[in-house]
Design a protein around this nucleic acid. Structure first.
Length: 417
DNA sequence: AGGTTAAGCGCG
DNA sequence: AAAGCGCGCTTAACCT
């Protein structure tokens, strides 16, 4: 019936049981849209504009000349041509890079890079979000209606565009001011429900690593547990720095990071980075086996699979170009985890939508952000949804580790976290 | 004038 | 030689 979907039943199942039911749900989410506090964005925009003007003046004074702070070429010329600052890395084209990691290192010794970093952050927020989002409001509905692409991301994730609502700032205080502008109408709340550590839990399930399974089954702080293992100390003795190291390693592994990448990320030498990875694999041998198994699977079959059987083809796995082949290997390691997470939240969207329909609830799905569902909820349904969402989302699939969903609610998206 | 590429950066 | 996965958007610079 679907010859392109392959001879195994899994791909046909994913198509019929996940992707097809999702079509109508995505349509509903897009049609629902999300409400923005335009006045708040406008006021914040003026504030940010004043700050940008101050930073621009500071940059010009420090550099001893005027220049376009948005031009990487002009920044290259000033930092490395005139001020003779050390070149830390190069762009793929061979020009000296001025990206964030470079400026952060230079900021330790020189004043101008710090100004540029602050300017870059605020300029990004203003142009991409503060100025742009109000222009995207539909005149008929008064809301912003994104579009979700169902067949763009190779791992099975959704992609969001016009506008992209899957990259709204959250990591900095300035960014969170933008999230405050995503509001609920009078009498309604924003409710957010997100899977906690879902990709690491999937890694535990797929790898069947004893230590990782135990950490999640017992509800441990997984980064703290990892730190205890690789530093050879008890969990109570782990300090913030050690936990941060463990977190970088845990995430790095999901992406197939090398000792070189880990060294760069942690600002340590390669020997130390290699030691951390060795200790990690000694403590979590199941994860080491998984990495090897996955590379072998990709090389033998030319594809890898999620837990539910979604496939990612990897033609570059046989490339004679080293960088392409290594890139395909990293994608092979990452795709089963990222893709299984995508499968799971799609099942969750179907489960939540079914429940809303069957119970005649008024609450509406309004956004999906990879591991998070956002709803607009009438105040009198708030308590029910906060209880129901975790129950629905945590039970769409049975893994060998528990899935945990955290919920929050508020007048706006920021408060809901 | 309009399209494309490079660099950079927002999120999970 | 390259070095961390998956996306979309903005600006500058370049090309047609």
């Amino acid at each position: 019936m679907f010859p392109q979907l392959g001879k195994t039943a899994h791909l046909t199942d994913i198509y019929q049981q996940i992707e097809l039911p999702l079509v109508d749900i995505l349509f509903q989410i897009e049609r629902n849209g999300v409400l923005l506090d335009v006045d708040q964005l406008h006021a914040y925009g003026k504030e940010v504009m004043r700050q940008l003007e101050i930073l621009e003046q500071q940059a010009h004074t420090t550099a001893g000349q005027t220049f376009n702070l948005n031009s990487t070429q002009q920044i290259q010329e000033i930092l490395f041509g005139q001020l003779k600052l050390p070149i830390i890395k190069k762009t793929p084209k061979g020009a000296p890079s001025t990206d964030e990691s470079v400026l952060q290192q230079l900021a330790l010794d020189y004043p101008l890079p710090r100004v540029l970093l602050e300017y870059r952050m605020l300029a990004k927020l203003k142009s991409t979000y503060i100025d742009k989002l109000p222009r995207m409001i539909n005149h008929n509905t008064g809301r912003v209606h994104t579009h979700y692409a169902q067949a763009v991301a190779v791992t099975g994730r959704l992609a969001s565009n016009e506008p992209n609502l899957q990259n709204i700032p959250i990591k900095t205080p300035a960014g969170r001011r933008i999230r405050e502008a995503f509001i609920a109408p009078e009498g309604w709340h924003i409710v957010s429900a997100d899977y906690s550590q879902i990709e690491l839990r999937i890694m535990a399930h797929i790898s069947q690593d004893k230590g990782l399974l135990k950490a999640f089954t017992e509800g441990q702080d997984v980064h703290r547990a990892t730190a205890a293992e690789i530093f050879g100390i008890s969990a109570e003795k782990v300090n913030q720095e050690q936990r941060r190291y463990a977190k970088v390693i845990n995430f790095g592994l999901i992406y197939g990071m090398s000792e070189f990448g880990l060294a760069a990320q942690l600002g340590i030498d390669r020997i130390a980075a290699r030691n951390f990875i060795e200790r990690y694999f000694i403590r979590y041998p199941g994860v080491s086996d998984y990495m090897q198994r996955t590379r072998a699977m990709a090389k033998q079959n030319g594809y890898v699979e999620t837990v539910l059987g979604r496939r990612l083809q990897l033609p570059d796995i046989h490339s004679h170009q080293h960088n392409r082949r290594m890139g395909a290997e990293r994608a092979a390691i990452n795709a089963p985890m990222q893709g299984t997470a995508a499968d799971i939240i799609k099942l969750a969207m179907i489960a939540v939508n079914n429940w809303l329909t069957q119970t005649h609830a008024q609450s509406k799905l309004i956004m999906q952000v990879h591991d998070e569902l956002v709803l607009e909820v009438p105040e009198n349904e708030s308590v029910t949804m906060m209880r129901q969402l975790p129950a629905l989302m945590e039970n769409v699939i049975k893994l060998d580790v528990p899935l945990v969903v955290q919920t929050g609610q508020g007048r706006n998206w920021e408060q809901a976290h």
